[in-house]
Structures are given as structure tokens and as C-alpha cells.
Design a protein around this nucleic acid. Sequence first.
DNA 1: CGGAGTGATTTA
DNA 2: TAAATCACTCCG
Lengths: 219, 219
Amino acid sequence: MMERRRTDCPALPPGWKKEEVIRKSGLSAGKSDVYYYSPTGKKFRSKPQLSRYLGNTVDLACFDFRTGKMMPGKLQKNKQRFKHDPLSLAKLFWEKRLKGLRSSDVTEQVLRTMRLPKGVQSIGPDSSDDTLLSAIASALHMSSVPIMGQTSGAAEKNPAIWLNTSQPLCKAFTITDEHIREQEIKVHKARRSLEEALMADSLARAAENARELLEGKTT
Amino acid sequence: MMERRRTDCPALPPGWKKEEVIRKSGLSAGKSDVYYYSPTGKKFRSKPQLSRYLGNTVDLACFDFRTGKMMPGKLQKNKQRFKHDPLSLAKLFWEKRLKGLRSSDVTEQVLRTMRLPKGVQSIGPDSSDDTLLSAIASALHMSSVPIMGQTSGAAEKNPAIWLNTSQPLCKAFTITDEHIREQEIKVHKARRSLEEALMADSLARAAENARELLEGKTT
DNA sequence: CGGAGTGATTTA
DNA sequence: TAAATCACTCCG
């Protein structure tokens, strides 16, 4: 029934649109999918994806993805626990840092009280992914350092690039040369995209972009 | 690296080759595309395309397109129900017919016991497409009748062209003059292609070719 | 290679 | 079980 019009979504910041598409065929014919579009036109297909992108900008705790409305009293959804996962910590870290606080102390403080939920710990690969994503995104933001200027070798392996930003979050995670090579071309792309978009103003957004560019890495 | 060698595919008839190409860049870098090549060198990019071409020659119900192997116990995939869709019926009809059976009875028998699944019924446009494709392909094969000899008028509207072959499968589907005119130029092309190819030996293959030539018609 | 559309898997 | 999320297919 032409349910393809993009409507404004008052529950989100200005410019965000919502769309509902009915499945036309297959086993799931008749069901519908809900999508959101950022002001710049980027498409979002799930609440976790949306949440990662908006970060602390908007609190989606009460946001119902399907209806597009805030549902007070539905805190049951939205996992409280994710406030302590590596990616969220990375966001907090950077936000504090950008406010001029002593970053190292802040980070240590957070890490000391951190308890990874069982469900999160068990998904080792994903945690590692998020950590790596944060590290890469952080590196991408450190424009004062040539990250991918050369095709391989020196710059990518320079520990200084990773130290202050990712070190506290990486702990048991070791980045090998092979890993770096595997990601090289993808990091290239991530960096190019960010430059073109002129949108590298938020770590959360960078991490979200990097996540998508890297997805499939451990699949 | 160099995953571009065409390897034999034991799960398919002799002479069929499989190729896997790794994507080098973009969001999907690292993922791969799988292609198959018929003994004559025609390239196939998806299971539906392959299935349409092979028709009942090979049962691809258990065939895994990505791996190229038969996967017994994976009947869950591959919809059993499609044995009863219009195009499959058209194939069955023609195969029976070519074997010298009384075609009309066979067709009626099949139609009487046919039950279109709800999910399939809802995709009216697609069903119509397949039906029309079958009808066109059938017409293209009836070389004894001038189908597109004239630019318009008599031949295209001659009911005899459609009667025996497509009538039973069209039932509720009405082909208007306008529809015919819309397809006229495309049918011209389809016919020319078939003549040049000298490959009009199977309805399934003709339907596959016609589908490709006509694609975009209702999009 | 992209991405809409749909299947498959996970979550609640 | 259904809903939500994720992953993949398939064709432009």
C-alpha cells in the first residue's frame, strides 16, 4: 500500500526520517521492516545500529524502534549493561577527554570499577572487535599523526599511534602485523570516507562507520 | 589469492564450472561472489538463474550455490512450494507435451490439485510475470505461426497463438492489446536473439533468456 | 561492488 | 512463538 513514504520522527533530532516497508514476497510476506534515515541520508536498520551512531547524543532507552515513539515505562528494553561495554567506555573516555579532564585518571577510574557482563565476556571476538574498532577510530581522529600515509610498514606499526587511546581498553588484546595488514585497505577506506564526509566530529559516529566497514572480518 | 580459477563442479552435470571471486574494496571487501559457467560458457550469478536454466534437468533443492555442493538435510531452504508456481508448471507442461502425452489432460490434472501457498498468491505481479514469460516463450517456439512478422495487428492478437500453451496457466490473467504493444519491441529482440543463438531447444532455457531480455518490465 | 529485500539466527 | 537483529542473496 505504498508504505514507503519517509515521515518525520519527532522522537529523534530534527531531520531524521522513519520509513516502514512491507515485505512483498517470501516466507515473511506481509511483515514489515522499519528504517530510519539520518539528516545526511544514511540508512539505519535496527535499534542497536541507531544507538551506536547516536551515542550519548540521544538517550534511546525509551525509544521504540518499530513505532518511532518514546515509550516511558519501557525501560525493560535497552540493556542497561551496555553502559559498561568496551565501545561505550571508549565513547565516555573520549567525551571526558574532549572536555579537558585528565584522561588517564578518568580511564583508570572507569576500568577499576568495570565489570563486563557475562554475556558480553563470552563473546570474545565481538569484544575484541569493538576494542579494535575504537582503537582504529581513535587513530583516525589523531590527524596529527600519519596513520596510513604509506602503503605499509612504519606508520601502521608505530606503537605511539595506539598507546594513549587504545591501550587501556586493549589490555589482553594483541594486534599483530598480520591483523594490521588485513585491515589496511579497510582502514584506508574508512579514512577516506571520513575525510570526504567532513563528519569526523564524534567518536561514536566514527566507530559506527568503522564497524560497518569492518564487518565480516571475523565472520 | 587469485581465486579466479574455474573449477569443476561435481554436483552439476559434466562440463559445468564454478568460480569464486573475492571483492577487493568497498563495504563488502573480503566477501566473495560465486559464479557458474555452463559447458557452453554462459555465466550464472545466482541460484534462481541457474535453476531456471537447468529446469527439471537437475534438482537443485539441496544444492548450495555458495559451496557448490549438495547439502542433504537442507530441504528447509529451497521452497518446496515452488513446484507449483506458474513457471514450474509451464516447464512440466512442456516436458510432458514433448514426450507425447495428452497435454491438455496433464495440465488440467495438475491445475486441479494445485494449491498456491498464501505467500505466493500475494505476489500477484511476479506470478503474472512468470506466466507472461512462459506465454511469450511458448509463442516464440511455435515457429509455424508468424508471431512478429508484422509490426502490429493481426498476428499478435491471434488467440490461437496463446490458446493451447498459455491458456491453462493464465486463467485470471488477461493480456490486452496494450500489454502486447508494450512488449512488442522486446519480443522482437527476444526472437532475434533466439534465432541467432540457434538454442531454442528447451522452454526452460527460452524462458530464462526471455526473462533477462524483458527484465525491468514491471520494475 | 552496492544495497534493497528476504532468509536465518538470536533474543525476550 | 514472535519480534528484533543480523547476515546473505541477487541483480543492477
